[in-house]
Amino acid sequence: MCLGVPGKILEISGDMATVELGKATVQVSMQLLDGGTVGEYVIVHAGFAIERLDIDAARKTLEAMDAFGELS
């Protein structure tokens, strides 16, 4: 139910955005976000973008995970 999938905004038109989810393209409501930009990643839950995905934060988390690989 709380399933959310990251997708890239391809186009914005009014309150709706066209979002690329893997190989699919879906129409998503942007009403729960304060604006949005083409090229940004958002988390899509049941037809709505519920939050932005911060690419820098994703990279930092992966780096933190990778730190163990280097230690071991």
């Binding site: 995905l53 994703a58 730190a67 163990f68 690989g69 230690l71």
Partner: peptide, 20 residues
């Protein structure tokens, strides 16, 4: 898929698992 597959990487996971 971007921002999904990276968080499924087996090698990356084995490092975390060793630490656990």
């Amino acid at each position: 898929m971007k921002y999904i597959d990276e968080f499924k990487d087996l090698v990356r996971g084995s490092g975390i698992l060793k630490e656990i």
